[in-house]
Design a binder for these strands. Structure first.
Lengths: 149, 149
DNA sequence: ACTATATAATTGTATATACAAACATCACTA
DNA sequence: TAGTGATGTTTGTATATACAATTATATAGT
């Protein structure tokens, strides 16, 4: 495999695609997802459910469209995630006209401190593996790229 | 939402989770996947099918376990991808004992130059959006992290 | 040589996410 | 005020990937 223009970058490990943005970002996301899943097992939620729930806890009454923008998932995906959290009795929806508002239940509010703990645990796990500053720099760089794409 | 120890990183855009590795790596992977999908539409393959196929073209007879290591997907996923490429008459499998070998068909070999073009197109698309050096640096940084996780 | 363990691949099933279409409501304009 | 287009949400369906269990084969220790 030949990656034009990228010859100046040192090849990493034995993987032929280590210099390719598609391959590398996908692999990274899968590994990080696994790590995050582990951290959120304590509250029996997948990372995406946990992030959505935390967002609602921070802004009770938030609309799905706003959630979609904040967590950067498609509206249809947000609907599906909300449904799951409703089944778990952690969220409720009210609809007025075309607007839907999403609220945390008391059960969700009770869970809030534990959610924060999971977030801290997740951060500590990856920053101990990667180094605080290095991982911070990487996240910042990736964030910039997300905005450009 | 409060991200302990990360206060020194500038918040990006309006997104509350822009400093979180999980969130950012997932968002980046989704955006890059979309871009890659566009580039590989010319050969009517998804990016993961295309990468697997290119790997087999480079190493005819390669085993699924080796493919799994190279493209960093689970063996079960590799089996499923190979099945799809078999349906498209681009790969064939032979099995001897516990070992399976995967070979490209003539049809796949004909497609090889087009696959390379797609790769170049993909690279040019993202490097024109992000800058060659900046994207190269980012990919290298992400690759290191993948290896550490 | 026989058994226990390790390896390679596959299958059944589950989860996450997306796209496109449908639906409902709202806002604006002629 | 009727019609048209924009917006917010949901639904039907498809794709990608994984985990756990299974099957088949190979290897090593005694």
């Amino acid at each position: 495999m030949y990656f034009p223009y990228l010859c100046f970058i040192v090849q990493i490990k034995d993987c032929k695609y280590s210099r390719c943005l598609y391959f590398t970002s996908a692999a990274l996301a899968r590994k990080v997802e696994k790590l995050a899943t582990e951290s959120w097992k304590k509250v029996n939620l997948s990372p995406s459910l946990a992030y959505l729930l935390m967002t609602v806890l921070d802004e009770p009454g938030i609309q799905p469209s706003n959630l979609s923008a904040q967590i950067q998932l498609q509206p249809s995906t947000v609907t599906r995630l909300i449904e799951k959290l409703e089944e778990k009795k952690l969220l409720v929806r009210t609809t007025e006209g075309k607007i839907t508002n999403v609220y945390p239940t008391p059960k969700a509010k009770e869970l809030h401190p534990k959610l924060k703990e999971c977030l801290v645990h997740f951060y500590e796990t990856y920053s101990s593996l990667l180094g605080k500053e290095e991982s911070g720099r990487l996240v910042a760089a990736m964030g910039k790229v997300v905005d450009k794409l």
